[in-house]
Amino acid sequence: MTEKRSLGDRIGNWFFGIPAVAQIWAKLLARDSQAQGDSIPFARLAKPLDQCRAALLTTGGIHLPEQPPFDMENPEGDASYREIPGDVALDQLVITHKYYNHKDADADPNIILPLDHFRDLASRGVIGQVAPRHFSFMGHIEGAQLPILVEQTAPEVAAKLRADGVDFAFLTPA
């Protein structure tokens, strides 16, 4: 663990670990979230699944130990991202994220970044292949960090996915 969790953080982690509480939190955030307009962007798979290259994205705050950890001091979050190399072993990764209890994700990172499963699906021919890199954010972005995510870091990652010839992305929050 690379971040320090205070007693308050621990109580918060426990409280928000209750499924019903997570839904109340979602309702409150939804009320405060900016309307994104009524049109949702939509693209279709361009080829059969067994020919598709898949990339994984998560807001679980997972990264390589040598990469800088996400900023836990800024109450508005951290809109930056870390590139996860496609050939990484999951047990090499660490998680910096004090807003959820990642004890279970530390024990089995596949619950937030299912790389082992996607590698297996590629070897079985269910999907074509796994992308050469994946992307990790930390989520809980608000205030001044929000436009950085929307205008800068998220479009930057989208462009990298295109450059990698990715056919679809699988996204997991935390």
């Binding site: 807001t59 990652v157 929050p173």
Partner: peptide, 23 residues
């Protein structure tokens, strides 16, 4: 997570997102 999905879809790459926060 949803905002990231939208940015990716906007460049023509389909996405599927797991949600644990419905609203």
């Amino acid at each position: 997570m949803g905002l990231i999905a939208r940015a990716i879809e906007a460049v023509g790459i389909p996405t599927v997102t797991i949600s644990i926060a419905k609203d």
